[in-house]
Every structure is written in C-alpha cells, then in structure tokens.
C-alpha cells in the first residue's frame, strides 16, 4: 500500500471515529437531558405561576426565562427560579405566602412577555387561573373552632364570589354558629391573598395548582336538578300521583292535613249504618 493511500485511509478512519464519537456523545446527552426534563415538568405545589399560564408543558415550551414579567410586576411578586430550586430553571413563579399576586387590572406581566408564554389573550385578570385556594386544614382554621375570623374572606379581591361565608351549627356549644369560608373554583383566580393574609403561623388556606386542588366528576355525570331546570321540565316520565282507595267523601291532603272527612250532611245520610255502634247492634237484634 502506498503511503499516500495509507494516509487517506487513516484520515478517513479518524473522520469516522470523530463522527461516531460525536454522535454517540450526543445520543447519551440527549437521553440524559430528555429524562431530566421530564422531572422538571412537575411543579412544586407551593410555586404558583404568573397569570396566563395554562398547561405547564406548554409554558415550558414557550418561556425563554428573560424575566421581563418579573421586571414589570409592580409588587415584586414574581421571581425567577434559581439553580438548585425544584422549579424549571429560570422560569417565573411566586410564593403566595410571601408576596401574593395583586391582580393588576392591566396585567403588566402578561403584556411584558415577548413570547406569549403568558397568554396575551388574558385581558381580564378575573379570568386568570394561577391556582386554586383550598382551605386545607380544618383542625387549625379558627373559623372551625367557632371563632370569628373571616380574614381570608375579607382580603379576597372577588369577595362573595371566590370566597363566601357559610353558616352552620356549632355542635360543640350547641347554640352558636360556625362561620366557615368556602372557596368557589368558578371564580377563584389563585392570587393567593387569602394564603398571604391567613392569621395562623402556617396558613390553613393555601393556593395550590388547580390540577392538585380540584376534583373532576365523570364526563357523563349530570345533575338531575340542573338538567331539569335547563329543560324547564322533568326529563324522565313524571311519577303518577298516588291515589288512595278512600271511601267516597274522604280525601287525602299531601301537604300535612292527612285524611279529611267531608262534613257533607247529605252524604252522611246516605250511610246505611247508624253512627252509634250501640244503635247498629240494636238494629241487628231487631
């Protein structure tokens, strides 16, 4: 073999080695990073995303971690996750107990987002669903002890819609009421003001990711009474009104009166028997 062709062979071999090593390294790297990236999709429950974030995976496909939302947040609510934190690196979040979202009407964080990771179609902050407040601990919430608190209710930006108060019997004292805050997922934006304001050492009401906080009934479930209202009539064949086999002149009142004997004297006369049992006996003897 001539030295020239030997050299070509060698360089070709080196080239192939180089390529395969690079490709191999890239494959190893891809597998490792790909698996790791799956882990980061699970957001810790106490990290709340800014308004306009829907699905976490969608968000992680769009956020470039520039922090412009953080900069335009007037209340320093938002921060970017740092290396070592269990939140996808560099992405914006907030800790409601620390600083909650003040629900600015003009939503500056969403406006600042250059990529649309925070959905620009969110124009009414009341439509934001950053999370869902949950009264997680009835053992420590003082409303459940029969004390008046209602701080969460009072700070709620959507008072009486997102959080309302519900009265129930205080079984312990037997004569007082429990005034219990109730969160409604139909209106709660997850701003976290309730969690921030909770008077306990550790908040009894907490904002959680909607996925974690909310149940979901079967897709085929229907509430009969709602369907009935929607249709304006009963959707099943109505029950026939029950008829008792009552003697003529009697009727039955379903509202509570019960059996009603008609006083109609003419009808009474028609009775073939005397009223008094003794008379009837005497008649029989005769």
């Amino acid at each position: 073999m001539s030295p020239e062709s030997n050299k070509t062979l060698q360089s070709r071999r080196r080239f192939l080695e180089n390529i395969s090593r690079t490709a191999g390294g890239a494959v190893l790297f891809s597998i490792g990073l790909g698996l790791y990236s799956q882990q980061t999709k699970s957001l810790p429950a106490d990290a709340i995303r800014p308004p306009g974030v829907g699905d976490e995976t969608d968000f992680l496909s769009a956020c470039v971690r520039c922090g412009l939302c953080v900069r335009d947040c007037p209340y320093d609510t938002l921060k970017l996750s740092k290396l070592g934190e269990p939140i996808a690196l560099g992405t914006p979040y907030f800790d409601a107990r620390d600083i909650p979202c003040e629900m600015c009407e003009d939503i500056p964080c969403v406006k600042a987002c250059p990529t649309g990771a925070l959905d620009p179609e969110l124009t009414n902050i009341d439509d934001a669903r950053m999370g869902l407040a949950v009264l997680v601990d009835q053992e420590t919430c003082i409303a459940f002890q029969g004390l008046r608190c209602e701080v969460c209710f009072n700070v709620c930006p959507l008072q009486n819609k997102a959080i309302s108060l519900s009265r129930s019997h205080n079984a312990r004292t037997g004569k007082h009421a429990l005034i219990i805050p109730v969160v409604h997922s139909s209106d709660c934006t997850g701003c976290g003001k309730c969690e921030h304001a909770c008077i306990l050492e550790e908040a009894a009401i907490k904002v959680m990711p909607v996925k974690l906080a909310k149940g979901e009934s079967g897709k085929h479930y229907r509430l009969g009474w709602e369907e009935k209202q929607k249709a304006g009539k009963s959707l099943v064949t109505p029950d026939l009104e029950h008829k008792y086999n009552l003697p003529e002149g009697s009727s039955y009142d379903y509202e509570g009166e019960g059996l009603i004997q008609s006083d109609d004297s003419e009808k009474n006369k028609k009775t073939p028997f005397n009223k008094s049992a003794l008379d009837r006996l005497n008649e029989g003897v005769r």
Binding site: F29, L33, G34, Y36, Q38, L89, G90
Partner: peptide, 17 residues
Amino acid sequence: STFIIASVTGVLAWELI
C-alpha cells in the same frame, strides 16, 4: 441534541441546564 430533545419533550430542555 438541544433541538431534538426540545421537539421530543416539548420543553426547552437545554435551558434547564
């Protein structure tokens, strides 16, 4: 790899590290 992982996982995987 960065582009392939991004398209497979649907997240900016490289930006995680």
